[in-house]
Simulated assay, not measured.
Amino acid sequence: MVRVWPLFGLVLTTPRLVLTPVRDEHLPELIDAVLAGIHDPAEMPFTVPWTDAPREVLITETARHQWRVRAGVSRENWTINFAVLHAGRVIGVQDLNARSFPSLRRVGSGSWLTRTAHGQGLGTEMRSAVLQFAFDHLGATSAVSEAAAWNGASLGVSTRLGYAPNGTSLVEARPGEVDVQQNLLLMREDFLRPGWVVDVQGGDAALELLSPGTPD
């Protein structure tokens, strides 16, 4: 399968986590992590309120979403959904995405963790992993992120990694509910790197698929 789809060979390893593009064998644990709960139901941290869906819809749509994302990868526009494994079990997803990447050299990211994995610094660790991969292996020069202005946990991850505020916008979190969204920007030279370096396996094949050149 790695020969057929090189991204399946991509593995990022941090001190506590393993991140690898979601494969079909990850889906049962991934769905379990979704169903166990990601956030307080009274709040909606996502710009698309997908976690409000009924249980039976969440099960099928989680699988469909992963397949759609995988099929949409091209050199110009791509999203990689990494399954995040802790102690060998899937606990969430960290995505890395880009639009017009050959020209802009900019990436974005989004993530979620099952609620039992919150509060352990894992969100910072997994985003740091994909940023190192983007800056040091794919040749990205900047990264963007966003979060609801009330979402201190997500904004805290961004602050710890060196992102700077980049304006705000209004989003409809749920029908009739408007949130202020804080936009963030991180230049490669401002990245606050951790005291460890991510181990990247399968990066050369990913580079051929996602990036037209090598890092500066």
Rank of each mutant, 00 (worst) to 15 (best):
V2M: 09
V2L: 10
R3E: 13
R3T: 11
W5A: 13
L10H: 00
P15W: 03
P15M: 03
L17Y: 01
V18E: 08
D24M: 13
H26W: 12
H26Y: 13
H26A: 11
H26T: 07
P28Y: 10
I31P: 09
D32W: 11
A33V: 04
V34P: 01
V34F: 05
L35I: 09
A36H: 13
P41D: 12
E43I: 12
M44C: 14
F46H: 10
T47A: 13
P49R: 10
W50G: 06
A53P: 01
P54R: 04
E56S: 15
V57Q: 14
L58P: 06
T60Y: 14
T60P: 12
E61L: 09
T62N: 14
T62L: 11
A63C: 12
A63P: 12
H65L: 14
H65T: 15
H65P: 03
Q66R: 15
W67H: 15
R68G: 15
R68I: 15
A71P: 14
V73G: 12
V73A: 11
S74C: 07
R75Q: 11
R75G: 07
W78K: 06
T79V: 15
I80F: 11
I80H: 08
N81S: 15
N81E: 14
N81D: 15
V84E: 00
A87D: 11
I91A: 03
I91F: 06
V93W: 02
D95Y: 14
L96M: 10
R106F: 02
R106I: 08
V107D: 01
S109E: 11
S109M: 13
G110Q: 09
T114K: 02
T114N: 05
T114D: 03
T114S: 11
H118W: 14
G119N: 10
Q120A: 11
L122Y: 07
L122R: 04
L122P: 04
T124P: 00
M126E: 09
S128W: 02
V130L: 03
V130N: 01
L131F: 01
Q132P: 04
F133Y: 10
F133R: 00
A140I: 02
A143H: 01
E146L: 07
E146S: 14
A147P: 07
W150L: 12
G152W: 02
G152K: 04
A153Y: 00
L155E: 00
G156R: 00
G156Y: 00
V157P: 01
G162S: 01
P165D: 06
P165R: 07
G167V: 07
T168L: 03
V171G: 10
R174G: 09
R174E: 08
R174M: 09
P175E: 09
P175N: 11
E177T: 13
V178F: 06
D179W: 08
L184G: 00
E189G: 07
D190Y: 03
D190G: 05
L192F: 06
R193H: 03
G195H: 08
G195E: 06
W196K: 04
V197D: 11
V197I: 09
G202Y: 00
A205Y: 05
A206Q: 02
L207D: 01
E208P: 05
L209R: 04
L209D: 02
L210P: 00
P212Y: 07
D216I: 05
